[in-house]
Design a protein around this nucleic acid. Structure first.
Lengths: 331, 331
DNA sequence: TTTCATATGTCAACCGGATGACATAAATTT
DNA sequence: AAATTTATGTCATCCGGTTGACATATGAAA
């Protein structure tokens, strides 16, 4: 059976296609009488406009792509969820790209922009090569990632998060505090977390110490690095873990090696997703305002697409959630 | 600046648009010489075909929508990831829909099909009303969800998973085993898990006992139901938790109330995502073949779209992963 | 009476590529 | 020499809407 088009509707209602289009798009002059006639025909024929044709003509797909390393990760799973919700409010749809931090992959996704398949992109990936991005500055925003001078960035107050986490560990009596950082070569705002850490350590005359766990490697490898850290250089009594996944892995390894948390080691994570908060409620962590990050990113991107002037940088406040891994009793 | 079109390329190369189109689509007769000339012009002008125009003409968007309750949940986060990967291999893109199990929401997404915005849909949602689906039987597959007679379903061997989990608990000495089920009103293959449980219990002359935890409610509410279960009717020594999230919540509440796992209570989960396996390695669980589920769903859907005959039901094997919550030492 | 906002319709052009029909050659086969 | 295959081009049409231009009525306001 053939698809019902606007022409069929026009014929059924005994009017011109222009009139139907006018009704559909609420344009020009239309009497209520005429409107009803058209709407009745639409209902009768069960007509549904072909959005692809509309998109083609208007040169707007109403699609936004989100590039994340992987939705497997709770933070990005939740971010994806929030962004999809936020976009839906404006009639946009979300199109998901798991980059796996593969530059080639990411480049492929950028091409979608040129192909006119998406109107804009939200980048939440941790990739290295950014020269490509320069060509798309007016249709991209990034979350927690500095791309180019002109691409708007929405981030949490990572620096303050680092300060809060470190202060908490110190106030609970830690003096040998390890800070987990991601890939040193990648300049992400997440690195500000360690700057906050450093500042707070130095303020207390403590020596900052780091361990590198690249974000993009698998759980197994992360586990190994952490295990190795325990085995070869254990002499820390506090860990600022960079994110909740690392924090939990630290907790697991500690338990495995019969260290008591929080007695021997205290831990603070970062992210504070619903999932982690509910499944690992004993973990003290710095809570990112994921929902606000999503809303803000969407708002700024849509403004950008409309040619409006937008803020180049938005920093949203974080909150410290205290629990048993830093000796705060919960329940 | 104006967009480079196929006409510009034709002019630049000194050929007709038809020739350019022939080169692009590898159709008709083309000499290598001519081909090179065209390709050179394409490169020089940095021409990128407008995919929206192509889609419009060919009536194929190359988009597939995935409807899930929420990507927040580790299982669906991982499923999303796998499906996106699988689709990418065939040049399809994934478009994400978080239904939140809201029927209205789900209906809205189905409309996308009619609007020609997506070519097909993979349903992984737990919704109730399914009458709508009848209109789309040749462009939908479902994962772990019986929709209509004709919509192909891909599922794990849930029944066997229930058997394996229950058998494990019994073999570890449990006799009062609680089984968590989702919404009783929703008929999902996940319910087969409890059938496997029942069968194995009866085989051992044990009395099946259930507790209902709807899938779609929040973590907090689930926590409350579980806490309530412990407080009002504690006399179980084993839990088949239905999924890993519930399993972990049971573990948390048990700890909170000073029950020892696995001494006092043994627990088996369901799903076995990478994330849960890595973050909660002590949890014994039934591992779903998520990657295969994704691959199979994609394969069947694409076959369906091509009008091929496809299997109406595919059942993939599960595996039992044994760990400390059922007294199996790990590490 | 003249102007004007309102109401309706027709027609053609356009968005960017895909494609079938048809014409014309040159190169190969038969 | 005739038939066939290969190579290239032009032209018009289509996909399904949107839109601007323009014509023609009203009834109301100036």
């Amino acid at each position: 059976m053939k698809r019902v088009t606007i022409h069929d509707v026009a014929k059924e209602a005994g009017v011109s296609v222009t009139t139907v289009s006018r009704v559909l798009n609420d344009r020009g002059y239309i009497s209520t009488e005429m409107k009803e006639k058209v709407l009745k025909a639409i209902k009768e024929l069960n007509y549904i406009p072909n959005e692809m044709a509309r998109s083609f003509f208007s040169n707007q797909s109403k699609f936004i792509a989100l590039i994340v390393p992987t939705t497997e990760n709770p933070f990005f799973g939740e971010l994806t969820f929030r962004i999809e919700k936020a976009l839906a409010k404006f009639g946009y749809h979300l199109f998901i790209c798991n980059s796996l931090n593969d530059p080639e992959n990411e480049e492929k996704y950028l091409r979608l922009l040129n192909e006119k398949r998406v109107d804009g992109i939200i980048v939440g990936s941790h990739n290295v090569d950014i020269s490509e991005y320069k060509n798309y500055e007016n249709q991209i925003v990034s979350i927690e990632r500095k791309l180019t001078e002109n691409i708007p960035m929405i981030q949490s107050d990572d620096y303050n998060g680092g300060v809060l986490a470190t202060r908490e560990l110190i106030s609970q009596g830690c003096s040998n505090i390890l800070c987990v950082i991601g890939d040193k070569n990648v300049e992400t705002p997440a690195n500000d977390r360690s700057l906050g850490y450093i500042s707070e350590m130095e303020k207390n005359n403590l020596k900052p110490r780091f361990i590198e766990i690249p974000f993009q490697i698998g759980y197994e490898e992360k586990y190994k690095i952490i295990k190795d850290t325990f085995q070869t250089k254990f002499n820390f009594d506090g860990v600022f873990a960079g994110d909740d996944v690392n924090a939990k892995l630290f907790m697991n390894v500690a338990k495995e090696m019969n260290y008591d948390i929080p007695e021997d080691i205290k831990i603070v994570g970062f992210d504070g997703t619903q999932t982690m908060r509910s499944l690992v409620p004993e973990l003290s962590t710095v809570v990112q305002p994921i929902e606000q990050l999503a809303n803000e990113a969407v708002k700024i991107l849509l403004d950008l697409l409309q040619g409006k002037k937008v803020k180049k940088e938005s920093t949203l406040p974080v909150e410290l959630y205290l629990s048993r891994t830093t000796n705060r009793i919960k329940n």
